[in-house]
C-alpha cells in the first residue's frame, strides 16, 4: 500500500472499514500489516484519496 501521508488526515476511516483489521493508526503514521488481502476497500473509502494500491491502476 502506498500512503500519501501528506494528504492523510489521520481520520481512521480506513481503519474502521478494513475487513481484515490490517491497519494501525497513531499520531504520526499509518501501518498496514500482513493480514491485508488487497481488497481495496480502504483505498475507496479514504475521503481524501491518500491511499493507493501498489501494482493496481
Amino acid at each position: 500500500m502506498i500512503v500519501h501521508i501528506e494528504k492523510c488526515h489521520k481520520c481512521g476511516a480506513c481503519v474502521g472499514s478494513c475487513p481484515q483489521n490490517a491497519i494501525y493508526l497513531n499520531d504520526v503514521m499509518l501501518e498496514f500489516n500482513e493480514n491485508c488481502n488487497r481488497c481495496g476497500r480502504c483505498v475507496k473509502i479514504c475521503p481524501v484519496g491518500a491511499l493507493e494500491m501498489e501494482g493496481k491502476e
Partner: peptide, 12 residues
C-alpha cells in the same frame, strides 16, 4: 455511500 464512490478522494 461507499459503493457510490467513483474516484479516489470523491468526498473532498
Amino acid at each position: 455511500l461507499t459503493p457510490l464512490i467513483k474516484n479516489l478522494g470523491d468526498p473532498k
